[in-house]
Amino acid sequence: MDSTLDRPLPVTTLETEPFWEGARAGRLVLMRCAECGRLAPPLAPRCPACLSAARAPQTCSGRVSLRGRTVLHLPALPGHPPPLVVVECAVAEEPAVMLVALDPEGISERLPPGAALRLGFATEANGQAYAVVAGAGA
């Protein structure tokens, strides 16, 4: 591994475990608040709307809409030589929840903002899961 690419891995807490477990199984799992019903971003420690800790995991569709896109031209990820396409997407079930995903096949290229994408997950040899663009269209 190129040591200049070393970065600390995500830290799993009790609050974020369902998301990471789901990710390793290829599913987008978010927490829905039992009190106000809002779906929280993956890493939120409590419901960001009402601060409740009463939440239940919900498997989402993986459908998202494209919000932002960048092409990394510098080495950024071990085993993934540049250029790397990274996208920012809003989750269909709750558009205020944004996810950042790798787009290894360049599916988002030439798609306008707001375009429908489908997210999946990939897992590195070290067990680290991350979101990837799996397809275009709803």
């Binding site: 974020t16 890493l43 919000r67 932002g68 960048t70 990394l72 903002p113 590195e124």
Partner: peptide, 30 residues
């Protein structure tokens, strides 16, 4: 950059986009 914030570490380092260049690129693109 690598130890800038837990949020970045958890949310975007696994896809390679942890530094300010990528963040500002998203904002610029938008």
């Amino acid at each position: 950059t690598a130890r800038f914030s837990q949020a970045s570490q958890d949310a975007v380092y696994p896809v390679g986009a942890g530094g300010p260049n990528a963040s500002f690129a998203m904002i610029t693109d938008h």
